[in-house]
Amino acid sequence: MNIFRLFGDLSHLAAIAILLLKIWKTRSCAGVSGKTQLLFAVCFITRYIDLFLHFVSLYNTEKVMKLIYISASVFTCYLIFFKFKATYDGNHDSMRAEFLIVPAAGLACLINTKFDAIEILWTFSIYLEAVAILPQLFLISKTGEAETITSHYLFAQGSYRALYILNWIYRYHYESHVDTIAIVAGVVQTILYCDFFYLYITKVVKGQKIVLPA
C-alpha cells in the first residue's frame, strides 16, 4: 500500500458517501445518472465476484472495503430507482448504457491477461469502469448544470482513479509492478474527467455553480 492508493481509495469512499448523503438528505436524485450508478454496481460485483465464490471470513480491510463498495452502490441504485424514483430524471439520463456494456464485454474477451472466467470478468469491470461516468457527464451536458454537491461527488470520483495513476507510477518505479490493462483503462477514465476538472477548479472552488452552455 502507498499513499497514492490510500488516498485514492479514501477519495473513492468519499465520492460514494457524498452521493449517498446528497440523495438521502435532499431526498432527491435530481441531477444524478441512475445508469452510471448501475454501471458502477456492475463493476463492483464483477470485480469482487471472488467474495461470493469462496467467501472467506472478513479477515482484512480489503474484504470489508469490497463489501462496502458493493453494498453502498447497490443501496444507491435502490434509492434512485425505487425509494426516490419520482425524482429520477429519466428523460435526461438517456445515454444508451448498452453502448458501453457491450464494447467493454467484447474488448474484455479480446484483450485480457488470461482467458478464464474470473479474469475476463475482472477485465470487463476495468473497461466498464473507465466509461461508466459517461451517462453522468452526458446528463449534466443535457441539463446544462450540476448541483454543487454533485460536482464534489464527481471531483472525488475522478480524483480516485487519477490518484491510482500516481500509485501505478510509484509501483512501477519501486516495485516494478505493471498492470497494463488497469493503467490504460485508468488513464482513459481520468481523461474523461478533464473538462469537468477544469470547470470544477475554475468555478466550484470559487463558490460558483457549474453551468454548461446549454
Partner: peptide
C-alpha cells in the same frame, strides 16, 4: 484450474 492472479488493488 488456475485461480486468477490475485489482484491486490480494489
Amino acid at each position: 484450474s488456475s485461480v486468477a492472479q490475485n489482484k491486490d488493488e480494489l
